[in-house]
Design a protein around this nucleic acid. Structure first.
Lengths: 122, 122
DNA sequence: TTGCCGTCAATGCAGCTGCATGTAACACTC
DNA sequence: GAGTGTTACATGCAGCTGCATTGACGGCAA
């Protein structure tokens, strides 16, 4: 799935969410949007910061929180990544299932997902 | 999916394959049976050996190969693991999909899998 | 025999997950 | 305002993946 030489897909996801939220996100918001565990977000953010793709600054409204904000390199990378990923997704999934099959697959996976979430947050 | 306090599912798989092959397997055979990458097998085996679940001995017929053989603790663990995993699988998948849905899901996943393999081993 | 190539396996590096636990800041109650 | 509980985030530990490279051996052809 991963386009060689490019950062992981999760990085793309995270950067995308940050770009959508013009004023930065708190980690907890990113967690919700990405459906990742708290510690996964924490470490993902750590790597992204190390790669200079985002800034992690204190939240003025909540001393516990951190505001995550895209850096310019983050924006640039986001721009550069999309074409490669679109092609990979098409290659690996698009080519395997036709439209109707993809819809069925999505609906089945959604059922599993709902079930899983129901168990996690009852 | 993981039953708390038990080793990972992959360990169970590996031990099971070893038990099936009465005279031990070479790593390359385990690789084929588990559909894991060469380095994944190598490291999985390393951990299993460290946990004293298998022995890794030189293959008399091929100086490059290693023969993987279950130890007694390996056999015992295998015995102990099954009930817990069966329950977990039922809980997470069995309860989410009815029989017909499960069959559809399996067939769709198989298509994706076939497609992926076709690309990897053309 | 020697030389080359392919095969079997190990390993460094980096990203990711889950579990458990720790720390700091907030919020609510008495 | 102190005590108690909750929330936001970080982190140690261990298992796992993928990529790239290496080392050792086997097989074969010149």
């Amino acid at each position: 799935m991963k386009a060689a030489g490019f950062p992981p897909l999760a990085w793309y996801d995270a950067l995308l969410e940050l770009r959508r939220a013009a004023n930065g996100l708190r980690a907890v918001d990113l967690e919700e949007r990405m459906l990742l565990a708290q510690y996964s977000i924490s470490r993902l953010v750590e790597r992204l910061e190390r790669a200079d793709l985002l800034d992690r600054r204190p939240d003025p409204d909540d001393g516990r929180g951190r505001l995550l904000v895209l850096t310019q390199p983050g924006r640039d990378l986001l721009q550069a990544m999309w074409p490669a990923y679109a092609a990979a997704i098409q290659r690996h999934l698009g080519a395997a299932l036709d439209k109707q099959e993809a819809v069925r697959m999505a609906s089945l996976l959604q059922k599993v997902l709902d079930h899983g979430l129901a168990e996690i947050r009852p």
